[in-house]
């Protein structure tokens, strides 16, 4: 785990430094930019889906879905970040008590 942390940490720093150091034309290709813009969208959406609906190699519907539902409503109401995240945890925890 430590090796992963150090390598991924250094890798993320190199990605930042490359952006500030490389000439614009090297990475400025429209295709590269489009794909790089879409990667966070695709990965974050996939992470939302798998964190909420996956468990032990199968699809699961449990209290986490209620937490996500709360997060969705909170975001629509433009609540702050922390309210969204803590609220989702509280909703899921309460649902498990019932």
């Amino acid at each position: 785990m430590w090796t992963t942390i150090v390598l991924a940490g250094v890798g993320c720093y190199v990605l930042k430094l490359a952006g500030l150091s490389l000439p614009d034309r090297l990475l400025g290709h429209p295709l590269v930019e489009r794909v790089a813009d879409l990667i966070p969208v695709a990965l974050l959406a996939a992470l939302v889906a798998t964190q909420v609906f996956a468990g032990d190699g199968a699809l699961v519907l449990d209290a986490r879905a209620l937490g996500l539902g709360f997060a969705l409503v909170a975001l629509l109401l433009r609540m702050p970040f922390l309210v969204v995240v803590v609220g989702a945890a509280v909703v899921a925890a309460l649902a498990r008590l019932v």
């Binding site: 959406a45 992470l47 937490g67």
Partner: peptide, 30 residues
């Protein structure tokens, strides 16, 4: 409910990017 907090955190990080319709399509497909 900390496991539910992770999904909410990712949704909150994704949220500002969903103003664009193509991004919504990519998010749903992904």
């Amino acid at each position: 409910g900390l496991d539910a907090a992770v999904g909410a955190a990712f949704l909150a990080l994704l949220w500002p990017r969903l103003q664009d319709r193509r991004n919504v399509l990519v998010a749903v497909l992904a």
